[in-house]
C-alpha cells in the first residue's frame, strides 16, 4: 500500500522544515489530496501517527483538504467539477477536448510549529 511511502515522504519534509525553523514540535500538518492523486485520505489518517512516532511531528494533528476533480475545456475555457462518469465532455460546448484543472494534487500546504519566542 503506497500510502506508507507517501506518509514517509511527508514526514521527511515536515522534519526538514521543522529543523530549518528550529521548531520544538509540530502542532499541525495541513495537506491537500486530490481525488485523482492515487492517495486514500483515510489510509493517510491512519498511517500518519504511526510514521510520525518518535519524530518532531509525533502527536501532530493531520488536516487533509480533499480536492475534487475539475476539468477545463480547451475549446471554450469553461471550467467545472467533473461529472461522476468522468470526462464526458464540456458541459458548456460539448467538446471532448477537456483537461484536468484540479484533482491530482498531493501537497503539503502548511505546517504549524511550536518555536521558541525570540
Amino acid at each position: 500500500m503506497h500510502e506508507l511511502s507517501v506518509a514517509q515522504a511527508l514526514i521527511e519534509q515536515v522534519e526538514a522544515t521543522a529543523t530549518k525553523e528550529h521548531a520544538l514540535r509540530v502542532v499541525r500538518v495541513v495537506i491537500t489530496v486530490g481525488a485523482l492523486s492515487g492517495v486514500d485520505a483515510e489510509a493517510m489518517r491512519s498511517l500518519f501517527p504511526l510514521v510520525a512516532e518518535g519524530t518532531v511531528a509525533a502527536d501532530a494533528e493531520l488536516v487533509i483538504e480533499q480536492v475534487t476533480v475539475r476539468v477545463r475545456c480547451r475549446e471554450c475555457g469553461h471550467e467545472a467539477p467533473a461529472e461522476a462518469e468522468l470526462f464526458v465532455g464540456c458541459a458548456a460546448c460539448g467538446s471532448k477536448k477537456v483537461e484536468l484543472s484540479a484533482g491530482r494534487e498531493l501537497n503539503i500546504k502548511s505546517l504549524e510549529l511550536e518555536v521558541n519566542e525570540r
Binding site: 519534509q13 522544515t17 501537497n107 503539503i108 500546504k109 502548511s110 505546517l111 518555536v115 521558541n116 519566542e117
Partner: peptide, 20 residues
Amino acid sequence: VSSAVEARTVVLQQKILSRN
C-alpha cells in the same frame, strides 16, 4: 532559558512526493 514558546505557521505549498 528562553521563557516562552509561540506558534509559527509555515506555508510550504510543495508536493509531498517532491523527492521522488
